[in-house]
Design a protein around this nucleic acid. Structure first.
Ligand SMILES: [Mn+2]
Ligand SMILES: [Mn+2]
Ligand SMILES: [Zn+2]
Ligand SMILES: [Zn+2]
Lengths: 145, 145
DNA sequence: CGATAGTTTAGATTATATCTAATCTGACAA
DNA sequence: TTGTCAGATTAGATATAATCTAAACTATCG
């Protein structure tokens, strides 16, 4: 991903392109996983400049606010984040809890009235089951006894 | 909901029907909202017998484990729980964060191969937008200035 | 009865997130 | 160039949610 493009998207959203903020954004854009704030802190601090925990949280809050990043809906105690690039769905593994991206396809939304007087903005899918790794580990029942 | 039915479903899952466990299960089954552990603690302790915080957490863990309750996928720091009765989707309000049930309808699952070697167990929808209350508050722009 | 497995409990501990107040930085006007 | 100031960063304190610990309680089965 182009450094200039990241800079432009930050400034286009009214946020200064600081080294710390850039680092968070660049890291998230290079991920297909969905890191927690703690994991982002670890990762961006493996290279300089060092960001404090508060700064990671501040920048995540700001990036979510302007819509460049979103918090992913998933179980678990730590929030997980996702650079909002291409639209996509999510697959959550029953066994290891990993949250993976699934290519977008349009979902049949219900006829109007189905949602009462609510206002619908979007509609996403959550698939559940076993991820590729966990599925290959869990071979067919009674085959390994 | 029948007290005997709750008792049977607990015992059918291999869990003793203690007053504390019964209280958690009965409370969750009477909810269309998705309470946090803290809210469940408050609610079941408005009537006797008193349950400790640890017991609420222990019982939620056990009930999720046997599949009578599930943790709902949503943003936010506190886990939210849902008695697994009828299958349903969820609507999450952009503004107030409330998680509401939406009647189930079958979702077109992708053709095989779309999910790679993953094993699909289920597929649920998350709708986003404004809940009825927030939608009625947010009337059309510049109408209330 | 006593033995045992399962459950509950208060309080300590850990993990995650937010707040505070001081400091730093960079853009820009004088 | 220099001063100003809003925005950004920081360490550490605080708040909140979840889990752990070890002791006590309860129901069941000889
Ligand atoms: Mn994603
Ligand atoms: Mn629900
Ligand atoms: Zn997995
Ligand atoms: Zn709302």
């Amino acid at each position: 991903m182009d450094a200039e493009a990241i800079k432009r998207s930050l400034e286009g959203s009214g946020l200064r392109c600081t080294p710390q903020r850039y680092a968070v954004m660049a890291f998230l854009m290079g991920q297909t996983k969905h890191p927690t704030a703690g994991e982002i802190f670890e990762a961006v601090n493996r290279v300089d400049p060092r960001s404090s925990r508060a700064t990671i949280y501040n920048n995540l809050r700001d990036l979510v606010q302007v819509g460049l990043v979103r918090e992913v809906a998933a179980e678990g105690r730590a929030a997980r984040f996702d650079a909002k690039g291409m639209r996509h769905h999510h697959f959550i593994c029953d066994r290891c809890g990993k949250v993976e991206d699934v290519d977008w396809y349009d979902v049949s939304t219900p006829e109007s009235g189905y949602l009462g007087t609510r206002t619908l903005r979007e509609c996403e899918l959550i698939f559940r089951g076993l991820c590729a790794k966990c599925a290959s580990r869990r071979v067919s029942p009674r085959s390994s006894s």
